[in-house]
Simulated scan of single mutants.
Amino acid sequence: MNCVLEGNSIKAFGKAIHALSRVGDELWLDPMVKGLALRSVNSAHSAYACFLFSPLFFQQYSLDSVREQDSGPIKCKLVMKSVLPLFRCSTSIERSVKQCQISVSTGSDRVIVQFFCRHGRKWHQ
């Protein structure tokens, strides 16, 4: 899965992650044909939240790596503490970040978040 966010989309995506961080300690990324779902559930399994971003929300959205494997849906579980700092300050993201690319690699079991900034590129695995 590969998707690209630009401008205000990065800010909205970050706010969704912050809202989900209030629900649980884990973030699930579910790339699907109808869009990218961000989900979280609390430790007692009594609260659940989901944001579904349609492919039209992204500048670019492709599921090439998902279709190659044909092994069913891909679900990535990430620790919220590792994802939250990436989208922490939306005002600094607005000023410095031009583009954000999120890639899910099934072969290497990695989620890569790249920020293309004015003064270079920052990436996180």
Rank of each mutant, 00 (worst) to 15 (best):
V79I: 06
K11I: 08
G14V: 01
V111N: 00
Q101D: 02
C89R: 07
S105V: 12
D70E: 06
V4C: 05
V66H: 15
S71V: 14
T106R: 11
F57T: 04
H18V: 06
V33Q: 14
Y48N: 09
Q60R: 14
S65L: 09
M32N: 11
F53Y: 14
S62Y: 14
E6N: 04
S46N: 10
I93L: 11
H18M: 06
N42K: 15
I112G: 04
Y48H: 14
F58D: 04
A37L: 11
I102G: 03
S105D: 14
L38Y: 12
A44S: 08
H119D: 05
S82W: 03
F13S: 03
R110N: 13
I102R: 13
V113Y: 02
P73H: 05
G107R: 11
K77F: 08
A37D: 14
R39F: 05
L56Y: 08
S90N: 08
L78T: 04
V41Y: 13
E94A: 04
H119G: 03
R110M: 15
Q59P: 08
T106M: 11
F87M: 01
D30C: 08
D70P: 09
K81A: 10
S92F: 10
S21T: 07
K11N: 07
S82H: 06
E94D: 05
Q101R: 15
L86C: 01
N2G: 14
F53E: 10
V83L: 04
S43C: 06
V41D: 04
S96M: 02
W123T: 00
Q125A: 03
S54F: 14
C3L: 06
D64H: 11
F58E: 03
H119L: 00
H124E: 00
L56M: 09
S43T: 08
K15S: 13
I10R: 03
E6K: 07
S9R: 11
L36T: 08
M1Y: 15
S65Y: 09
I74L: 13
F87I: 00
F51Y: 12
V33S: 13
E26A: 06
L5S: 03
I10W: 02
V33F: 12
S82A: 02
